[in-house]
């Protein structure tokens, strides 16, 4: 560590002693290599983003004449909109279910993988597979399994005498939300498992040996050694779980459509802007969703920036 620091210091010094134009040339090259990034992101993300923020202060509605400036009206109306409230509540439930299940399941999967020998590679492939499947296909597969009459899940529940007849999952708000969360968790849990497996592999084996010599139980070892040493990756995994569930669209759309029982915030944005054509109202809502999402994921960004600064 110290060695590489002195090394890079020496290089910087020698570089400064060399051609005066070398820094300028490096900056020019850096700028040129990054230019495509700036053009694509600027034109297709930041420009539309600024437009969204600006236009959310106007009334843009193809069904009504003119586009008058209305200030924060769209935003204040959002807070009293029952549809937005329902969608917010649905989204918060989905986030809660997803983060808890993905974290517990992901850590459990990672511990199991870590304890395996040669077969680990194959179990890991099986675990990752759901992550690679398009969420649309995954939702359709699950909706067939949860079919009230012909589905395998209800057949099992009937066999266990937990239900009788055809339990219709989509008719019950709690059941429908749990189903959507489950489908989402099935896809996203592998990511937590992979992140945590990498974190577990980074723990030096001597620490476990020391804990064993000290006579620590496996639970105690998990609490005192494993958890503290994987806290960073765990926070990252939970952050991405939160952001992904917060931006959930596909699963809720395929399984619940426009139903208010399961409508997520992004479905609400889609319905408002593209089905009901209240363009600027939808924009205002999407800005609020973005701010919430950014606040949650600041962990990600702060880490990224920290890395850049330390470099």
């Amino acid at each position: 560590m110290t060695l590489s620091m002195t090394d890079s210091y020496r290089v910087r010094v020698t570089r400064r002693l060399r051609l005066t134009g070398s820094d300028a040339r490096e900056a020019l090259l850096g700028g040129s290599l990054v230019l495509p990034v700036i053009v694509v992101m600027g034109a297709l993300v930041f420009f539309p983003l600024v437009m969204t923020a600006g236009q959310s202060l106007f009334r843009i509605d193809p069904m009504r004449p003119g586009t008058p400036f209305i200030g924060m009206t769209n935003y204040t109306r959002l807070f009293n909109d029952p549809e937005v409230r329902a969608a917010t509540a649905n989204t918060l439930w989905l986030v809660l279910l997803a983060v808890v299940l993905e974290t517990l399941g992901g850590v459990a999967f990672a511990l199991l993988l870590q304890s395996m020998g040669r077969a680990r590679k194959w179990l890991l492939a099986a675990i990752i597979l759901p992550w690679a499947i398009p969420s649309v296909v995954n939702s359709l597969m699950w909706s067939w399994m949860f079919n009230p009459t012909y589905g395998v899940i209800n057949a099992i529940l009937r066999g266990l005498h937990l239900i009788s007849g055809d339990f219709v999952w989509s008719n019950n708000r709690t059941a429908a939300l749990v189903l959507i969360a489950l489908v989402h968790v099935w896809k996203m849990l592998p990511l937590t498992a992979v992140i945590m497996l990498a974190a577990l592999q980074g723990i030096p084996a001597q620490l476990y040996e020391a804990a064993k010599i000290d006579g620590a139980s496996s639970w105690r070892t998990f609490i005192s050694v494993t958890l503290p040493l994987t806290a960073g990756p765990l926070a990252i995994a939970m952050t991405q779980s939160t952001v992904t569930a917060f931006n959930l669209f596909d699963e809720a759309w395929i399984l619940g459509g426009a139903s208010l029982d399961t409508r997520s915030l992004l479905i609400e944005v889609y319905m408002t802007a593209f089905q009901n054509l209240h363009m600027s109202y939808g924009m205002a809502l999407s800005i609020l969703v973005m701010l919430a999402s950014l606040a949650v994921s600041s962990v990600f960004v702060l880490r990224g920036r920290g890395e850049t600064h330390s470099e």
């Binding site: 490096e26 900056a27 020019l28 090259l29 850096g30 700028g31 990054v34 990034v37 700036i38 992101m41 297709l44 993300v45 930041f46 420009f47 539309p48 983003l49 437009m51 969204t52 236009q55 952001v243 917060f246 931006n247 669209f249 992004l266 944005v269 889609y270 802007a273 363009m279 939808g282 924009m283 999407s286 800005i287 969703v289 973005m290 999402s293 950014l294 949650v296 994921s297 990600f300 960004v301 990224g304 920036r305 850049t308 600064h309």
Partner: peptide
């Protein structure tokens, strides 16, 4: 190069921007 950290930070921050925030414009 000048602005490196700011540009990188801004680009990475868009990871958290839901697609539908920019989709209308």
């Amino acid at each position: 190069f000048p602005g490196r950290n700011i540009v990188f930070g801004l680009v990475v921050a868009t990871l958290a921007v839901p697609g539908y925030t920019v989709i209308i414009p």
